[in-house]
Amino acid sequence: MVSCRSAGLLRPGGTTGIHHVMQSATASKESFFQRHYFLFRRLHSLTGILPIGVFLINHLLTNSSVAWGALALREKTVDAPWWVHGAEYFWREVRWLNTQIPNLLLIEIALWGSILFHSVFGVYYAMTGSVNTARYAYQGNWRYRLQRISGYIGILFIFYHVATLRWGWTFLVPGGTVWSQEFAASTLALTLRGGSSGVTAAGLAVSLAYFIGVTLLVFHFANGLWTAAITWGLTISEASQRRWGYACTGLGTVLMIMGWMSLFTFAAADPAKLREMEERMTQKQAMVSASPIAR
């Protein structure tokens, strides 16, 4: 027996005629948040695209270069497998990002601020909804539900991702690998494999976590991009929403493939060979830096 929902508005002797419409409830009573409700909601939507979405595209593009970098590398100085060349390209990309982007700190603050904002409000907004996919198993309803699930899991994943790779919470990394920026490729490979001695079960778990995290976040972004176009009123008709849906699916697919490619390549790569490449590149860079011409 379930309890019947109570009808608070049905007071004996009362009437349920039309309630007088509140004339935009007195401003003094409203909180700062309520007064700027629209702004917060739209900022939440916007931050998902800019900067977070843009960063995500860039991040996956950079990382996936380990898989396709061999094709892009202009000169191959050593004879090595394709993924070592890819990792070399990736090394160069990372170095370029870290040294050539102006005001990197400001960008990072903006990015982290946005992620924090998007997460906090995202969770808050998601809490206002309910789940009814069992009764209304429409594709759109499933995406609605998945958007919220992917948001929750995405937050956890990002936290893990950053905590282990940035903040050095090595106790969460199998084999205790310390990720370092100069040796990004090899330490990442070690992390995903669970240590230097082949692929371990713990490593597999980490890889799986990455796979799920990346997949859900890419879905979250692509689907978010689709709903944002409705939220902002860019796509109006059902047809335009469908067309934009194809576009978002396309973008999501490309990003998904990039994410999976980077994951598989890093997880499959021999960390020792990557380390070798990184040391070679670091040395080479030091020489270039030491050269007076370079200044």
């Binding site: 009437t15 349920t16 005629g17 039309i18 007088h20 419409v21």
Partner: peptide
Amino acid sequence: VRRYASEGKVHKYEFW
């Protein structure tokens, strides 16, 4: 009528 009701000029007793 909804307009007048929101202005308090009509009071609806529905289900009466």
